[in-house]
């Protein structure tokens, strides 16, 4: 987990002052993690949800108070609200195909998937994950651990890391 993010700190502060270039930098720093999270919980709708979330982020940015780390949590909360606004499509058709990371995470129960993704895709720290999910910290910790275990089981238990490496080595 990164302890600090000076580049994002500066970019957020300058974007709040109205700097358009800084806002683009913020987008490039934050969007990948956000999109990873949304892909894991919303599948193919992730891009649409992300676009709606970014419109709100751009509009509400003057309200935000905090540094880069706080900004990741704040934006994750906005993205989550947009994702929850849409019903999660169930069934195999909603799942991304194959052994892509999205496909693996999509097979977890939603709360576990969220805990894992917020922690490891968005790279939030535990208190921030708890705040975004509106759950107590111990619950979030258990959810993340269970989610990881389930992932490990899905990947095959005896050679977890190797399997993941092989699976993730060939994206798409």
């Amino acid at each position: 987990m990164p302890t600090g993010d000076p580049a994002l700190d500066t970019a957020v502060a300058r974007a709040q002052d109205g700097d358009e270039t800084a806002f683009a930098a913020v987008y490039r720093l934050v969007h990948p993690g956000l999109l990873g999270y949304l892909r894991g919980i919303a599948g193919e709708e992730a891009e649409d949800i992300a676009a709606a979330a970014w419109r709100e982020i751009a509009r509400e940015l003057p309200r935000f108070r905090g540094d880069g780390r706080g900004f990741r949590g704040w934006t994750a909360g906005i993205a989550r609200r947009h994702a929850l606004g849409r019903p999660r499509r169930s069934g195999a058709s909603a799942r991304p195909p194959g052994h892509s990371p999205e496909a693996l995470v999509a097979r977890l129960p939603r709360a576990q998937a969220e805990a894992v993704l917020l922690r490891h895709a968005v790279r939030l720290e535990e208190p921030a994950v708890a705040r975004v999910m509106r759950r107590p910290r111990p619950v979030v910790r258990v959810l993340a651990r269970r989610g990881l275990r389930s992932l490990a089981r899905l990947l095959g238990t005896d050679e977890v890391t190797h399997d993941v490496a092989r699976t993730l080595g060939e994206p798409g």
């Binding site: 969007h31 990873g36 894991g40 993704l117 490891h120 895709a121 992932l151 977890v160 993941v164």
Partner: peptide
């Protein structure tokens, strides 16, 4: 498990913007 998580997180973030 931690390694699994890191790799999955990285893979999810690595998608082209």
């Amino acid at each position: 498990l931690e390694r699994t998580a890191e790799r999955i997180g990285e893979a999810l973030r690595r998608r082209p913007v």
